[in-house]
């Protein structure tokens, strides 16, 4: 006997909510389609309706014994360990730090932070080594892409040392 699983129910309702959201926004789109007779709101309407139907279907499955053919909730049955929230958090932190830093501190510094956080997520405790690897990698990438290939990446705080792309 399958048991009711909150996560499946939440995801199903999330899909349903997204469908309703799409439908809601679609209602604000204009419908004139010129000679085709199909306006910019037609396909969004179809897609929104489809997502609503699928959300209802998923919810039905979730509340009536759980999703069909879904992977087991018991991590050991999947050959994995329990959800590691810290690791998940470190990756998230790394990506957000990178997002915040890249614009003003520059690509290299953002890359170091990202590298160190991801390595930490995978269990590395050697912070100095990770920062060093991060520096070597991001600096290498920066020099190679910006100086040799003229790709546009921000130098940020290191601009006085690295310079920026230009002729």
């Amino acid at each position: 006997m399958r048991r009711f699983k909150p996560a499946e129910a939440a995801l199903s309702l999330g899909v349903l909510a997204l469908g309703l959201g799409v439908a809601g926004v679609t209602a604000t789109l204009p419908s004139e389609g010129g000679y085709s007779g199909i306006g910019p709101n037609f396909i969004p309407g179809v897609v929104g309706a489809g997502i609503v139907v699928l959300g209802l279907w998923l919810s039905y499955e979730a509340f009536a014994g759980g999703w069909r053919n879904a992977p087991p909730d018991d991590a050991r049955a999947r050959g994995e360990h329990e959800f590691n929230a810290a690791a998940f958090g470190w990756i998230t932190a790394g990506l957000f730090a990178h997002m915040a830093l890249i614009g003003w501190a520059g690509f290299v510094i953002a890359g170091i932070a990202l590298f160190a956080c991801i390595a930490r997520a995978f269990g590395s405790l050697r912070v100095a080594r990770d920062l060093g690897f991060g520096l070597v990698l991001s600096l290498g990438v920066f020099v190679f892409f910006v100086k040799l290939l003229n790709v546009n990446l921000p130098a940020g705080w290191l601009a006085p040392i690295l310079g920026t792309a230009g002729i």
């Binding site: 690509f107 890359g111 590298f115 991801i118 990770d130 690897f133 991060g134 892409f145």
Partner: peptide, 23 residues
């Protein structure tokens, strides 16, 4: 794995950022 995934994500973010140079 720690080095591998850290490296992958440095390049993955590079690819995405190069589209509009925007966070």
């Amino acid at each position: 794995k720690d080095i591998l995934y850290a490296g992958i994500l440095v390049f993955a973010t590079l690819g995405a950022y190069s589209l509009h140079q925007s966070w």
